Computed example of a mutant assay.
Amino acid sequence: MLWFEWDNLVLTGAQAACVALPAAGVPRFLERFRGGWWALILPLCIVAVIVGIDQVPDTANVLTWVALLLIPPGCALALGWAMHGARWWLAPLAIPLLAIAWADQDGSRPGQVATLLLIMGSVITLGRLLGGAAPLLLLKLGLIAMAVSDAILVFGNTLQAPNAVLEAAAPGAGLPQLQSAAFHYASMGYGDFFAAAVLGGLLATERRPQLIPAVALLVVSLCWDQLFLTVDTLPATVPVAIVLVLVEVWAQVRRRRRVAAPDG
């Protein structure tokens, strides 16, 4: 018996695209801000949010406003600069996406797709910026720490209640909720897309292929999703960490083969 849902596949495919799309490099004026502490954002963005909401539920309302104010500009930056194939004249497309997400908040497909694209764009920008701002080794360790902390919170039933509060929170005044993505019955948190985009950003910075790891993430996620046969919630950052480990192992294998080739 296999677990499979088309709605979930849409979100998983979008997460995989976040690996393939980030480009590399940061503006020169931002290079002065490079530092290893940026890698701490990865595990803290989950732990701090969950603990904050658990202790102070109104934190969720603040985060909805943060998402509303920062995600559309982040998407515009992706369209105009941060992603492969970006063009400056594509950046204004973030405006109609926000308008659709705002107008269609009743669970309709257009509103859900617009919200998903806005989130994807914003994390692609963050992935490129982090790939250029943090030492890559620390970024990789931070990505694994993020997945580990996410898994501990999910399988320990610590994440579900605060996450439900966050997903239900709204900025008010009829404004759209951009803090998570949903497609019919399936949903995925912002951090899950963020993790994938950071993987894409560090691969782009190292000038490694991104399409194959993106496809690998899709395959690994489909395998990981078989656990839905026994549980209701899964940490979608774990497949990202698994793909990162696979990429690193494959790189080591290729390196050893190149070293051994002259002797052969």
Rank of each mutant, 00 (worst) to 15 (best):
A145Q: 09
A197M: 05
L153D: 01
A181N: 09
A261W: 08
I119G: 01
F29C: 12
L126E: 06
I124A: 11
I242S: 05
A151R: 07
G85L: 13
R128H: 09
C45P: 01
Q177T: 14
L11T: 12
P176F: 01
W65T: 01
I53P: 08
S122A: 14
M146E: 06
K140H: 09
D150S: 10
P135E: 08
L21P: 05
V249E: 06
V123G: 04
A261F: 10
P92Q: 06
L11K: 08
G52S: 14
L199Q: 02
L79Q: 13
W224V: 11
I100G: 11
A134W: 05
D150M: 05
D106P: 03
L44V: 15
V62G: 08
A181K: 06
P43T: 15
L222S: 12
V62F: 14
P239R: 03
L139Y: 01
D263K: 15
P22Y: 06
L202T: 13
D232I: 12
P43Q: 15
F29I: 14
T125K: 12
W37T: 15
Q160V: 14
Q226F: 06
D54H: 10
A186H: 07
A23T: 02
S187A: 12
L234Q: 04
A197K: 04
N157G: 06
V243K: 02
A197V: 03
L129H: 05
N61Y: 15
A76Y: 04
A39D: 08
R254T: 11
L93P: 00
A196D: 00
H84K: 15
A23D: 11
I71N: 02
P162L: 06
I95S: 11
V253Q: 14
G107R: 13
G36L: 07
G127R: 10
I41Y: 05
A67T: 00
P27R: 12
V26R: 04
A78K: 12
Q252F: 02
K140I: 09
Q252W: 01
I46L: 13
E167N: 09
L199N: 04
R208V: 09
I95E: 08
G35L: 04
P162W: 00
L42S: 02
G121Q: 12
L30I: 10
R257A: 13
L63H: 02
A214Y: 02
F183A: 04
